[in-house]
Amino acid sequence: MIEIHGLVHRFGEPPDLTEALRGIDLSIGEGEFVALLGPNGCGKTTLAKHLNALLLPTEGEVRVDGLSTSDPAELWEIRRRVGMVFQDPDRQMVASVVEEEVAFGPENLGVPPEEIRRRIGWALEALGIEALRRAEPNLLSGGQKQRVAIASVLVMEPRYLVMDEPTAMLDPLGRREVLRAVHDLRSNLGLTVLYVTHHMEEVLQADRVVALRDGRVALQGPPSEVFSRVEELRSLGLDIPSHLELAWRLRAAGLDLPDGLVGEESLAQAILGRWRELR
């Protein structure tokens, strides 16, 4: 479990002081899939970097399974437990062959070669990229590269996966590949996921959605509840998937729609139900 209490983060010195996080209280439970949304500059990335101690609290506290990120003695254990995947896969690649790339982390920790081989096989399989084992990372597609980046984190056997806009630079195919991989990891390995994104359609299946504004939690709840608050979402500068905006307008025009409608199919069913009734 990750617990965040009264987290404040300030960058710089006066007069150029920026308060990126202004008091965040949040906990993320075992096995949960939490989506973190918000416009640029709201503090999403800053918050994500606190979860594995890439940043340390100015005030407040972050605990990972009870270990405080402010305690230098726990740093390595925290970083092993919380794996990070960033936006641009190209900036995360260091090796010239996929399996070397994936081996980089455990090799640095002195994990025995046999064990590294076992983990590489397992991680590549978990992400559906076994066939790329001997490929050159810079010749891969964006979706493949990002899955290699996830595999490199997975071999550290983390319990938490923090992903900062992992699909922002990918095409639709790559986006689908990465999203599917994340969902598989979660259901097969029970990983806890914090997923940062701008795209609401990517988080319709999250357990909980947290939206930040100006360094504070502005809104949170299950998608079915959060996505019905269209006007609040818009005021937060988030894009509303067009089928949800349509649902909201039809409801305003008098169509009876079930609460907590999230998927396209449920909207289609509601429309068809009414239409058949009228015929």
């Binding site: 067009s242 039809l250 169509l255 429309i271």
Partner: peptide, 26 residues
């Protein structure tokens, strides 16, 4: 399912407009 929208909508406003008739919304 037999409900065709005309013209095929590209925007939320067009979709809302196209559905008003078939769903007899005000």
């Amino acid at each position: 399912e037999g409900l065709s929208l005309e013209p095929a909508p590209l925007t939320v406003s067009e979709a809302e407009e196209a559905l008003r008739g078939p769903l007899s919304l005000g």
